[in-house]
Amino acid sequence: MPPVSPRLSPAMQVVVTAVRKAGRRLLRDFGEVEQLQVSVKGPSDFVSTADLRAEQTLKEELSKARPNFAFLMEESGASGDDGWEWRWVVDPLDGTTNFLHGIPHWAVSVGIEKRLDAERTELVAGVIYNPASDDLFWAEKGVGAFLNDRRLRVSARREMREAVFATGIPFGGVPRKAEFSAILHRIMPQVAGVRRFGSAALDLAWVAAGRYDGFWELGLNKWDIAAGLVMVREAGGFVTDPEGGDPYASGHVVAGNQALQPRLREVVADGIAAVKARTGG
């Protein structure tokens, strides 16, 4: 197990302990993926017994350490005091389809959200852990972003033609296929490559690590991105929605470094606008 930075705060120590415990259980299930009981949750969207067990492990571990924190979890939804001051935002298994197909690219993601006032909240920390590779990404506002104990910075590339971007491809009954096609049509001639690895949490972590130069995806949930948004910002990157607004509120994410994020955002916004003009939407 790689060392983790001594800069971890007590709250982050709690999260790291929880995600590693959930991760150990997920790894055991990953080794027996063909025997998992799997039910269909939606179009091309599966939930496994492993997913549910991991969420329960995380809830138990995090609740023991911080009983006053509320939860927003992928499988069980929101729980805790409606007037919460602090909230865990949890995806117990981001990349479920990869997991169920034996592809070792999936993660446990936990973000920490703080309420500022009646109308506003702020994401202040996050952990994204891939048990298959034992990569532990973490970030805390004002402290920085890290992979295990190594400080992370977004890439320094400035030219679109040298950039590799990541995205998520709409599938099954998921909407926005037209927007995705329009955006991809505009981006492909400009860049070195586009990747789709199947975990938005890890995509954002990899932007923070400089492995990707940027990432875009539409229609994500809060638990998909809570930890990753903090990660990118603490690594010196920028993340907004295509209109320059709050991606946590809209679920539409465009992330990258200072030079490339504005250009990627412009291409994404142009693709969306083209579809609206064509369909009258």
Rank of each mutant, 00 (worst) to 15 (best):
T96S: 13
I169F: 03
D246A: 02
W88I: 15
R196K: 02
L264P: 11
L218A: 05
K59E: 13
P104V: 03
G83K: 02
D134F: 03
R66A: 12
R20W: 07
Q190F: 02
K41L: 06
A259H: 09
G281L: 10
G237R: 00
E162V: 02
E234S: 00
V164F: 04
L116E: 13
T167R: 15
R157F: 13
A178V: 01
W88A: 10
D149E: 15
D91P: 05
D213M: 02
Q56M: 09
I183E: 08
V124N: 05
M12V: 13
L204N: 04
L116Q: 11
G83E: 08
F99T: 03
L123N: 02
A209W: 15
A65G: 03
G111L: 05
N98M: 07
Q13K: 09
A139G: 12
T49C: 02
F30S: 05
G172E: 14
V40G: 08
A274E: 10
D203A: 12
V4Y: 12
F197L: 10
G193W: 04
L52Y: 07
P262Y: 09
E119P: 01
I128V: 14
K59N: 02
S5Q: 01
A200T: 14
F215R: 07
L123T: 04
E74R: 05
L72Y: 14
L136H: 00
V267G: 01
P175A: 00
V253R: 11
E119N: 11
W216V: 06
L229Q: 08
V143L: 08
A156W: 11
G31T: 00
V275N: 07
K141R: 01
L202F: 14
A70S: 01
G251V: 09
K64A: 12
K64E: 08
V89P: 01
F215T: 07
D270V: 03
G251T: 09
D224Q: 15
F69E: 07
A205P: 14
A269D: 12
F71M: 00
A200D: 08
L229C: 12
S39T: 13
R278I: 07
P3V: 03
L36F: 01
S44F: 06
P247C: 00
D241I: 05
V275T: 09
Q261P: 11
A201C: 11
A125M: 09
A227Q: 13
L116Y: 09
D81V: 06
V4N: 12
R263V: 10
E122H: 10
F99N: 07
E113I: 06
S48W: 00
Y212D: 15
P6T: 12
A259V: 08
D135E: 14
L260N: 07
F99A: 01
G95V: 02
G228W: 05
G95P: 05
R265G: 04
R24P: 09
P262L: 13
F71Q: 01
R25M: 07
K64V: 11
F180T: 06
R87D: 05
A118W: 12
D203K: 04
L220Y: 09
S63H: 03
P170K: 00
R120C: 14
L58Y: 11
F69Y: 15
L218V: 07
S9H: 03
E85I: 14
V253I: 15
A54T: 03
P3G: 03
P43K: 15
R7Y: 10
